[in-house]
Amino acid sequence: MKIITANSLLTGAPIYWAGTGRWSAELSEALTIDPADAESALQQASAQSEIAVNAYLVAVEARGAPVKREALREAIRAHGPTIRPDPGRPDPGRVPACLPDQSPDQSPE
C-alpha cells in the first residue's frame, strides 16, 4: 500500500494526503492507497500546489506505517528530530533510537 506525503507550503511541515482535497498534519490520518491507484492519486494531490510542496508516495504496511528505506526518514519527519524532543512533535518515543543506551526524551543540555 502507499500513502502520499508532502511539505506544507506555508510552514514546510510534513503533511499527509487524507483524501480528495484534504491534507492532515498526522501520519495516522494519511489515506492508504492501493498501488494501482497511487500515480493518479499523486497527480491529484500534486495539483494542490497552494497547499502542498514536493508531494511523493511512500510505501506503507497494512496499518499505514512506512516500510523499507523510508521507514526511519518518515518516522523522523512524522515525529520530529530524535535528538531534541523540545522542538519536535508529539510522541518522540515512536522514533527508533539510534543507540541502545539513548533515551529519546532525554534533555540535550
Binding site: 511539505n7 510552514t11 514546510g12 511541515a13 510534513p14 510542496v53 514536493n54 526518514r73 523522523i76 519527519r77 520530529g80 528530530p81
Partner: peptide
Amino acid sequence: LMNGLYLQLHAY
C-alpha cells in the same frame, strides 16, 4: 534558494 531558504524535513 538564491535567498538561502531551503525546504528540509520538518520546515523551511
